[in-house]
Design a protein around this nucleic acid. Structure first.
Lengths: 219, 219
DNA sequence: AACCGGGTCCCCCGCACGGGGGACTTCCGA
DNA sequence: TCGGAAGTCCCCCGTGCGGGGGACCCGGTT
């Protein structure tokens, strides 16, 4: 089974270089070459290649925009590999968000470009190692639980419980009902929480709880 | 400059296989072979190899635990490559959180294992393509901006501005000072915001703003 | 026995807040 | 030209909230 590839880059020389690389592989067929993003989008829609190799820097529509347009159309099953000279973080995040199957630097050895096309075609993905390192770091922090501020240890269990409810925007009366205690008790707890955390009022408490991850609204 | 490698796997046969692979490379030296995670940790601390290749499944301490121990010790500069037979998502996330430089399947071709060691040694990272695909999907959702609720479009620019400040726990008077308007004006804006968003009071507004990503407290 | 931290409940007081009105200006589109 | 939307400012009024006291009970420590 042969894989069809579309090449998009505004440098004709680079395109022919890549085409030459692919032609060494009997199962890879370069079905189109385009020089800008808009042409890439329309040719992908017309030819439905297995893989589109897009440069990020292109006239009219850059590779990221083209990726987004291609992948947002459910009729397309084309996988997108993005190529770039510089690996700006912003590019990477946007590319991955758009659903690209690869983010590679142009310094990639030819045989790895070939393997990348095969990887993308079978639905897997790959990212240049120099980018992966930072991606992991970013991913780790995005998964890491927010650091618990030390002053939170000053609170008793009951006070933390009340703080959670305050953060959920419940009024004192509502909290009292949920905890089956009097509302005067809740007022006492809230006052202690505010004093211990150095917060002015419950509004600050709500903000504090949210920025410190005491409320898991999605994430 | 030669790179030193530590191998950790509970199967002697697999270890000798990998050692044989590395011995084809004059600049790679396999300085230790261990059969469990605890030995891996202690030998890494003793020998300080450039790269440790750890199996995930190991007696006494698994590869993930060993990774965490190795990388949490700042005295170690050893990079960690994790090898596994099955690519469970949980493994991957934990490995990346611990700061591993690679997450590879044992089905990896020998030459790619060699290249992976070199990649890790120079501080980059790489992830098996079959895992990368799912990682991207997960990463994309963790980066995706929270869907903006439609009712937010009802607000005028000024009202959104005020909402931002309310969310930052400013009082009406403080907001008035920041916007150089009277506090009665702010009250009007706040009232309109509450009415348009169907919120009871500013406390709900703060919670609303945070859960809807109008405040970027980290993330 | 005395002590203390945590939890519960109570009173008073000042005030920021929010609802419900109204009013004026500017600007833009019908 | 006449609206209407947006922004600004004003008054009244009720109330939830938070500070400042105090009180009681319970469990554990000293």
């Amino acid at each position: 089974m042969t894989l069809t590839v579309l090449l998009a880059d505004d440098h004709a020389m680079l395109r022919s270089g890549m085409r030459a690389i692919f032609e060494t592989q009997p199962d890879l067929q370069c079905v189109a070459e385009v020089a800008d993003g808009r042409a890439a989008v329309s040719e992908v829609a017309r030819l439905r290649p297995d893989v589109a190799v897009l440069d990020i820097r292109m006239p009219k529509l850059d590779g990221l925009g083209a990726t987004e347009m291609i992948l947002s159309d459910p009729a397309n099953r084309t996988k997108v590999l993005l190529l770039t000279t510089y690996d700006s973080d912003e590019y990477v995040y946007r590319a991955l968000n758009a659903g690209a199957s690869g983010f590679l630097l142009k310094s990639l050895p030819p045989e790895e470009l070939i393997s990348a096309v095969r990887v993308a075609a079978r639905g897997d993905a790959l990212i240049d190692p120099s980018v992966t390192q930072r991606l992991i770091a970013r991913f780790a922090v995005s998964l890491a639980p927010p650091p618990t501020p030390p002053e939170l240890a000053l609170l008793t269990a009951r006070e933390r419980e009340v703080l959670q409810l305050v953060a959920a925007a419940y009024s004192n009366a509502e909290i009292a009902a949920q905890l089956h205690v009097g509302d005067e008790t809740v007022k006492t707890h809230v006052s202690r929480v505010l004093a211990k955390l150095g917060l002015r009022d419950r509004v600050h408490a709500v903000a504090y709880a949210h920025v410190n991850g005491l409320v898991q609204g999605r994430r």
